[in-house]
Design a binder for these strands. Structure first.
Length: 450
RNA sequence: GGCCCGUUGGUCAAGCGGUUAAGACUCCGCCCUUUCACGGCGGCAACAAGGGUUCGAGUCCCUUACGGGUCACCA
């Protein structure tokens, strides 16, 4: 029976690297029909942060990484076993165990007291070896290892000690954690040996880097899961991306849902070297997820970003919302891309008249005036039907020996004031509706005349 | 500095003794097109260096360089 654990310290934030470790531990447990345990490592009282555990709970839940055992059970789900007889799951509540085993170690001569703390005694001779599933066989001379504190003078265990005790008591079979612990693993091994316990399987994962020389850290301002959700990333996309940072499924597919990751996850694909975080790549993945959403789902997801801009005097300023959302979907990589694209809807059409000069469209201020006149006429003469009006413009363009853009581009400028709009002139007409469009065109014509 | 570990295009990465060294992102062209996007097609671009082993090395060994981790009463 595989039992993995995620053992974060409650710092108040969920670092992407930490989340990835949780993901891997969760995936490994699910993949092997095992148990995923959440344990809070709050042995450092100086670092205690109010409400920090809630960040851990909520992040895990929104990511779908439900735990089978822990301080608070995850979403009830039939397939999960209902054990949880290994609590408490807060290290601060397990002090008795740590004291008990530190006493035992002292009795065995593997630990001693100094300066009010209990220290682990490292053998001076020999060497210690262990096998890591990612890094392979590792051997260190005991002379290279130094004695370490097991119980701090405040009575709390150190992370190093509490980990060993808890992992054993909770019957953890596979430890998945950051590679920064690779160097201290021999000390753990020595502890397991001194206690006569069988060490679990170790799986160390290389860190996520900001660039070649620096780890992704809070100082960068965008290392936390919440930072990316705030920026408009979809949680599925974030999970998908970080899963691929430091692990490769091997094939050419790089899009995986959580359950697909469970099927694909394999330790052999875990990388030994650090991976540099690339937000541009993550954006691309996010864009893919957004485009894959059904129109309904996209509308629901994008609404909060659109709503402030389409409400005018308490009314919706958009005549055709579906058209708006349909236009936005392929133009959205992250949700926050939306707002700057639709500011034209509620804002007055005040823009640089120079925009009418466009070499590619072969338009100038003069031709724009003509085109807008035609647009106005077309709108007044026809129903607001895309095909019907387009046909009218096409005929006009053919007669004049130009492309439709000759007429439609000035219309877009008149309506949006933007060189790049989420749709062409006609599309914008449909979004804004006949009345608003005509109003804007008239205003634009007046400006062009002066 | 000691000790561990690592090093394939700008980035993520496949590869696990014999390949024209995948794929994705980025970037650049072209096509599509009422702008911008989406989409389609194509292109630029890599085995850190030097020694071995081998008929043959990105794949195995050694050295160097560079990078990461660790050496806390933090985790």
């Amino acid at each position: 029976m595989v039992r993995t654990r995620f053992a974060p310290s409650p710092t108040g934030f969920m670092h992407l690297g930490v989340l990835r470790t949780a993901l891997y531990a969760w995936l490994y447990a699910r993949k092997n029909k095992g148990t995923f345990i959440l344990r809070i490592e709050d042995t450092d009282r100086a670092r205690y942060v109010e409400g920090a555990v809630d960040v851990i709970y909520s992040t895990l839940k929104t990511c779908g990484l439900h735990w089978d055992e822990g301080p608070e059970r995850g979403t009830p789900c039939g397939e999960y076993s209902e054990t949880g007889n290994y609590g408490p799951y807060f290290q601060s509540e397990r002090k008795d165990s740590y004291m008990k085993y530190s006493e035992l170690l002292i009795e065995k001569g593997a630990a001693y007291r100094k300066d009010g703390a209990v220290w682990q005694k490292i053998p001076t001779a020999g060497s210690t070896s262990f096998r890591d599933e990612v890094y392979g066989e590792i051997t260190v001379e005991n002379s290279e290892i130094e004695d370490q504190v097991l119980i701090k003078s405040d009575g709390m265990p150190t992370y190093n000690f509490a980990n060993v005790i808890d992992d054993h008591l909770m019957e953890i079979t596979h430890i998945i954690r950051g590679s920064e612990f690779l160097s201290s693993t021999p000390k753990y091994i020595l502890l397991y040996e001194a206690l006569g316990w069988k060490p679990p399987v170790f799986i160390h994962v290389a860190p996520i880097m900001r660039d070649a020389g620096n780890k992704l850290s809070k100082r960068d301002g965008d290392a936390y899961f919440s930072d990316f959700i705030d920026k408009g990333y979809l949680v599925e996309a974030v999970i998908n991306y970080i899963a691929l940072l430091g692990w490769s499924p091997g094939g050419e597919n790089e899009f995986f849902t959580l359950s697909e990751l469970v099927g694909a996850f394999d330790l052999s694909g875990v990388s030994k070297s650090p991976a540099i975080f690339d937000e541009v790549k993550m954006r691309a993945i996010n864009a893919h997820y957004i485009r894959s959403l059904t129109p309904e789902k996209f509308k629901e997801t994008a609404k909060p970003y659109v709503k402030p801009y389409i409400c005018k005097d308490g009314q919706c300023a958009v005549a055709n919302c579906d058209a708006l959302f349909a236009a936005l979907q392929p133009r959205t990589e992250v949700l926050t891309d939306i707002t700057p694209q639709i500011d034209f809807i509620s804002a007055a059409c005040d823009h640089e008249i120079e925009l009418y000069n466009n070499k590619k469209m072969k338009t100038t201020l003069e031709t724009a005036l003509v085109a807008l006149g035609e647009a106005l006429r077309a709108l007044e003469e026809h129903e607001l039907d895309r095909d019907e009006i387009f046909t009218a413009f096409k005929a006009l363009a053919d007669d004049a020996g130009v492309k439709v853009g000759y007429f439609l581009y000035p219309l877009q400028i008149a309506l949006t004031g933007k060189q790049s709009a989420p749709g062409g002139g006609l599309d914008i007409c449909i979004m804004l509706g006949k009345d608003e469009s005509i109003k804007r065109i008239k205003t634009a014509i007046e400006r062009l005349k002066t």
